[in-house]
């Protein structure tokens, strides 16, 4: 008996693939693609010479420099602190652990303006913490350190929350195996544990960095926003917009967008490298 080759398709779990994909694409287009495209087109209107003049103006350059420097400082701090925090939350049992775990999300939940205000109040010359720092000659508010502080505050959960689940899923047998093979605790962390959480950690740090570059609300309160000193790029774009200088605003925004895209690519590359052993 000869069977006709009847096309048999595996049933999809979710019904309406076309509909769900269509909705997703529509939403993605409306909320991400069109604004980005508009930004790029707006930037393209300016023309390369004018664009270059805007983004290399001393004030703009200074703003980029402040933004990137502060973001690097904030990310370096979060890279260490976030990893430590994730480690503590996963590896130790102590009273109040759940509360600490919940507190980790506050930077996500808190309006950034509130965060900026409270940080300013804490670190200003007569604030709770600032009153002790100021006599030592350390000023946070209205300096680049203030900018970095605000960035660090808003972006630390990204590191903690990406590393934490990976660390939780790490089979304790790996460490036990290393121990039976004679590895010291330090060697176990450096050679067995850390390489396995490295992809997640890199991802977390990249997102934290990207978030720091774009942070606005928390920073404007604490930075003082002195042009050439503590003015960040996002604020400069905002100021240009207020001056009805749409071209200037979109040129600066475009540069920020480029940074974000470059970061995404770098982050993906780094992760692919760090996960090279997982593929078949």
């Amino acid at each position: 008996m000869i069977h006709a080759a009847a096309p048999v398709r595996a049933k999809r779990v979710l019904p309406g693939f076309t509909l769900s994909l269509g909705t997703t694409l529509l939403y993605l287009t409306a909320i991400i693609l069109i604004p980005v495209l508009a930004l790029i087109l707006k930037g393209a209107e300016i023309g390369p010479a004018r664009f270059w003049a805007i983004v290399t103006a001393p004030r703009a350059l200074a703003a980029f420099q402040v933004t990137i420097t502060a973001a690097v400082i904030a990310t370096a701090f979060n890279a260490v602190y976030g990893l430590l925090m994730a480690w503590v939350l996963v590896r130790y049992e102590f009273p109040g652990k759940r509360i600490l775990d919940a507190l980790m999300d506050i930077p996500f939940a808190l309006p950034t303006a509130v965060a900026g205000l409270s940080l300013t109040a804490l670190f200003s010359a007569n604030g709770w913490i600032g009153q002790f720092l100021e006599p030592q000659g350390i000023s946070i508010v209205y300096t680049i350190w203030g900018v970095a502080l605000a960035m660090a505050f808003t972006s630390v959960p990204f590191v903690v929350r990406t590393v934490q689940p990976v660390l939780e899923d790490l089979d304790p047998a790996f460490e036990q195996a290393a121990r039976t093979l004679g590895a010291s605790e330090g060697a176990i962390f450096a050679r067995v544990v850390f390489p396995q959480i490295l992809p997640a950690w890199l991802a977390g740090c990249t997102i934290a960095f990207a978030r720091s570059l774009g942070e606005f609300g928390a920073i404007v309160f604490i930075a003082g926003n002195l042009p050439m000193k503590t003015e960040i790029a996002a604020l400069l774009a905002f100021i240009r917009l207020e001056e009805f200088d749409y071209q200037g605003a979109s040129a600066i925004a475009l540069v920020l967008l480029m940074f974000a895209l470059i970061l995404l690519v770098v982050s993906n590359r780094l992760q692919a490298w760090a996960m090279r052993f997982k593929g078949i």
Partner: peptide, 20 residues
């Protein structure tokens, strides 16, 4: 400590280091 006992332990699910 386990490090000093010089034992070879083969785990049920092998626990091979995936990144090596």
């Amino acid at each position: 400590p386990a490090q000093k006992r010089r034992i070879g332990f083969v785990f049920q699910h092998y626990a091979l280091f995936p990144h090596m």
